[in-house]
Nucleic acid binder design. Structure first.
Lengths: 351, 351
DNA sequence: CTGAAAGCGCTTACAG
DNA sequence: CTGAAAGCGCTTACAG
């Protein structure tokens, strides 16, 4: 006769389940009639597991409704399964930009397909940056996607010290650590647009450049200069203070002041172009009759401006895909190199 | 004489550090001259720890550069420290909307202040939804912020079964599970705008309503009807198929067809209004001279449309704050009730 | 192929 | 107030 009141293995599992803990790997093993180790192996690729055991485990998995405990797994594998999407610039107004949304969305999706998650992190303030570093050092994330870095950004250098895998979106400033990056070919895109403007017979071509210290800005301005040479005098260049509609309006207004006879303008982002169009309208200049306006990005807003915006397309889905790909390589310990993706001119009505 | 070659406790820690594992709580305890338990207590509020021990631990914390291992902590506390921000609708075009960006940004920030992280998750496809459920069941997230649910969304019901804390952004469909929600007062906002339109002497007021099955849409339409009564015939209502610029243009075009004599239109979102303005312009109707246009949201695009958009402000920062607050309560096991936040009219030039 | 066992780094009753 | 110890749920050499 056995003492039925004595606790035995089976009752433990039952009790645990009763208190809503969810089945553990031990429970699955019990149901499948194998050991915990075998269940684990079956879950992780199924190498060194017999077909029968595999089948039994799979049955047990569904019958128990097993869900792995990621914390327990992470504790031993030292992989969190998450990636930080870090907005390195003061992101107050950054979120207005559809470009960012598109990037975030595609990254989230591609990461999910690889079983990883996107953790959104802000890094505009010192405390926020400290938090990012903390996450990197503590292994809370396996890698970081660094978006919108600007010159002299302290975060990049600090991240470098943590040795966490990092890939930068956009060409990073030359003075920071040499992280791999993925960027659209900003310079060539700017050349494409500037040439287009010049090709339409305009003589006085100006540009609203991006903020001086931000990724992409310098490249696009350089492309503009490549085509225009000495004609690209300072009077013809206005730097926006941020990538926002308001900043675009202000910069365009200044441009109209310093260079009233301009007949075309290359604006370094679509959002800036929305502002530039406003300023032009306000000044009574017709687009494209009096002034040709070319944007950059081909974001969701471009076809919706008045008139619809001729712009340079950044291949955002590809940027996102390469970003995720490169980071995945890095996390796996494999080397990965930067990629620069081609841009293309998208003709609409503004130029 | 002691055998110096024998491994002893201290050498273990040193070896571990050498292989770049980072200091553990054990190391901190050793440096502070206390036990691991005391370090843990010091870290978790410092209750039942003497001032001296506390000081010693804090010194050791900085001198060792200790960073907690979140996985280990989560394993025992059953708290992940992360919250899922779930985009329940097919999010293809959703990310265009600055409203979403603002919401995400503020939530991320407020969550960070409370030591939690925002995990972005898409839930447009069955696989994506399954992933969300998996995360909820597996405790990978402590709670979920459900954004943009629509009628008949299967995710809500399934999430309910997992018993994970959920708070919905926007008024959830009446037939789903009764999650607490945080919403702007859509109905009252719509009334405000419709009354404003009527107050400016317009006789033929139409509306571009949101998609039939989406959160907010029904409420805003109801508010419109509240004011207009029987005058709100079907001819005067066009439903957009999504909250996008394109859908706004299409809906406005249809409206112009069915109700060519309209002299004012209440558009259920700013992004839709951008499209509506395009359609109006294309049809040669001057805004506001011929047609008054009122939007909803007061998103970043509103001041930048042509003409600047009169709209209804949703208090997004407050929505985000309440969302985080309610979810925090729920996670802590305290009950929390829904909140509806007041909206206000923002007068610009379109109406 | 498979099981027993050690170990990942914490937290938290339990004694004292 | 504090330490010793159990335990959270996994993975992964190590034997067999």
């Amino acid at each position: 006769m056995v003492d039925d009141t004595a606790p035995h293995p089976k009752s433990r599992g039952a009790a645990r389940r009763a208190q809503r803990r969810g089945p553990t790997m031990e429970d699955v093993a019990e149901v499948a009639g194998v050991s915990r180790g075998t269940v684990s192996r079956a879950l992780n690729g199924g190498a060194h597991v017999s077909p029968e055991a595999l089948a039994a485990v799979h049955d047990a998995l569904r019958s128990t409704g097993y869900v792995i405990n990621q914390s327990a797994r992470s504790l031993v594998t030292r992989r969190s399964g998450a990636v930080a999407f870090v907005l390195s610039d003061a992101p107050d107004r950054l979120f207005e930009d559809p470009v960012l949304g598109a990037l975030m969305r595609t990254c989230t999706q591609l990461l999910a397909e690889r079983g990883s998650s996107l953790m959104l992190m802000l890094a505009g303030t010192p405390q926020e940056r400290e938090r990012v570093l903390h996450f990197a050092r503590g292994g809370h994330v396996d890698g970081v996607l660094l978006v919108s870095v600007h010159d002299g950004d302290p975060l990049a250098a600090q991240l470098h010290e943590t040795r966490v895998p990092v890939v930068v979106c956009g060409r990073p400033p030359s003075r920071g650590p040499a992280f791999p990056y993925v960027a659209a070919d900003d310079r060539d895109g700017a050349r494409l647009m500037t040439r287009h403007l010049a090709g339409r017979g305009r003589r006085r071509i100006a540009t609203v450049a991006g903020p001086r210290d931000m990724a992409g800005g310098a490249e696009r301005l350089q492309g503009f200069r490549d085509v225009l040479g000495r004609r690209a005098s300072r009077r013809v260049i206005a730097h926006a203070t941020a990538y926002t509609i308001d900043a675009g309006r202000d910069a365009m207004t200044r441009l109209l002041d310093t260079c009233p006879d301009l007949d075309a303008v290359f604006v370094a982002s679509d959002l800036l172009a929305v502002g530039a169009l406003q300023a032009l309208r306000h000044a009574g200049r017709a687009v494209p009759a009096d002034v040709l306006v070319g944007g950059f990005d081909d974001s969701a807003i471009a076809p919706a401006t008045t008139p619809p915006l001729t712009t340079v397309r950044q291949p955002l889905p590809r940027v996102a895909a390469e970003l995720v790909e490169v980071l995945t390589q890095l996390i796996a310990g494999r080397p990965a190199s930067s990629r620069v993706l081609p841009t293309e001119l998208v003709l609409r009505e503004s130029a």
